[in-house]
Amino acid sequence: MTIACFTSFTWGYLARARVLSRTLRAAHPDWHQVALIVDTPAAGMEAALAGFDEVVFAAELGVPDFPAFLFRHTLVEACTALKPRMLARLLETGAEAVVYLDPDIAVFHPLAAVLRALESASIVLTPHQHAPNDEPQAIHDAERTAQLYGVFNLGFAAIRNDGTGRGFARWWQSRCETDCRDAPEEGLFTDQRYCDLVPALFPRVAVLRDPGCNVASWNLSRRLPVVTAEGALDVDGSPLAFYHFTKIGDVGDTMTRRYARNELPLELAHWWQRQVAAAAVPSISDRPWAWRYFADGTPIPPGLRRAWRTERDLRARFADPFATGPDSFLAWIVHERPHLLTAAET
């Protein structure tokens, strides 16, 4: 099966994406690796991106009213909102299946369970939780959180290039390009909550409950990674295919410490942080997201993005909201709603 695998990231996540690329290459040297960079191109990055077979910048995806699209999204929202369009594009180029992996994933053993699932399924998703929890804290952290943020973790998806797969891609793209927000209180969490509907809306959906796929702090309460005598990594009888280092170095550390039942998840996190540090490209890894600022360098606070998203007449009046100068959106804001500029974007 010819497989294209892509990830979506900004320059700030380049080091993580390079670790993903290197570890994926070791497990699947024949997969066509694509980097979707949701940022502006930068010179001299060829060597840093050499692990990928193809590099696509967000502006190349043909999103209508691209500046307006970007302005309605935060960094995370933009990176996720463009995943379906990239998926559709790769399906059009003829890959038999397309796999998406978040840039903070690392591959340890081949994704054999995914390939097996694709033999009979058109859409393969991994649930955040694959077994019930019984401790109150774990029920809250794992199950309640999944109810708010999505049953499936969309750090991974595998789509077969058939009618169902292409239909899913079109539906997902439509939803994400309409409303891809981090608003769990409204039943939205970027591209992820939509996929709760997938088993109901589409046939041949595989809910991949293999314990070695998408292991992360949020499912360690029910998964136990171990090292075998021959030095392989194993999770409850399955090879550890890929581990998702969600928010490691931040709140992910707390969750990992809380739920790890041995030191192996911490060893993996320790290793991954060393790899990311070694893969850093100093000239660009600290560069802020290109669309975090107006053209003159003024930061864009989230409240401003919200106003732009919700007020149709603003969108009609200003074609490029990033522009500055007379008659710009920024000039209008400074005059009409200066309070929206006071909160810095996070």
Binding site: V227, L233, W271
Partner: peptide
């Protein structure tokens, strides 16, 4: 941390050590 038994150098255990 834990006795590794000197697995093959290309093993995952060595990769993460």
């Amino acid at each position: 941390l834990d006795a590794c038994g000197a697995p093959p150098a290309e093993s995952m255990a060595c990769r993460i050590c």
